[in-house]
């Protein structure tokens, strides 16, 4: 059964509050009342529970919410990396898109994008089934550098640094979005060519460079 868009928005807000901001939410904050249709819809399904002032995810609601967040963030990546949309447009478009993305489509999009780990805002994207299997049935447009073979080239789309320092290191080596990069070898360590510079790095760091494949 398909949830209403409003109900999905509520689940998404609850998930982000609970998992990332670590705070509880009451209905007033969401400008909702107990008998609004989307709230009732969720209560009937047992997806949320209301205890006093607090609204919490319950039962299958947790899984459902996580999947919505995942779709929203995947949609953002799709807008930015593949469709090249401007950042201002991205959020709005992604909000609409998340409701249209069905499970099967979601996996395809995730695969197409090379199973990204973070959204363009740096928040983590909940993992899906396809990420574990690293499905490559559809050949991805954007992928982590380590998915490329020695000799292949790409254009850097974004960096997924675990922290400031790591980003700064990559940037110091000239590894920045927009630059062309080629993998010279992958073993025993990665050897990359950017312009006339060669850089050696381990797999852990190369993994964080996402590129669009080039011929």
């Amino acid at each position: 059964m398909k949830l209403s868009d409003e109900a999905e928005e509520i689940l998404e807000t609850l998930w982000i509050s609970a998992k990332e901001k670590k705070q509880n939410v009451d209905l007033n904050y969401l400008k909702l009342a107990r008998d609004d249709p989307p709230v009732k819809e969720l209560l009937n399904l047992g997806y949320i529970a209301i205890l006093g002032d607090e609204t919490q995810l319950a039962g299958r609601g947790r899984k459902e919410a996580e999947s919505i967040v995942r779709r929203h963030r995947l949609a953002e990546r799709l807008m930015l990396d593949v469709l090249d949309l401007k950042k201002e447009l991205m959020n709005e478009a992604a909000c609409k898109f998340e409701h249209l993305l069905y499970k099967e489509v979601e996996e395809s999009v995730c695969t197409l994008l090379g199973h990204p780990k973070v959204c363009p805002h740096g928040k983590s994207i909940p993992r899906g089934r396809c990420c574990g299997k690293m499905d490559r049935a559809i050949s991805p447009v954007v992928s982590s550098l380590i998915e490329l073979d020695a000799g292949q080239r790409g254009r850097i789309v974004y960096l997924h640094g675990k922290n400031d320092k790591e980003l700064q290191k990559l940037m110091a080596m000239g590894i920045l979005p927009g630059m062309h990069i080629q993998i010279i070898q992958k073993f025993p360590s990665y050897l990359l060519q950017i312009g006339q510079t060669q850089v050696a790095m381990d797999e852990k760091m190369a993994e964080d460079v996402y590129v669009r494949r080039e011929r």
């Binding site: 290191k169 080596m173 060669q198 850089v199 050696a200 790095m201 381990d202 760091m205």
Partner: peptide
């Protein structure tokens, strides 16, 4: 933490 390795390889 596990150390990261990166190094410029000059000609």
């Amino acid at each position: 933490e596990k150390p990261l390795f990166y190094m410029e390889v000059p000609p």
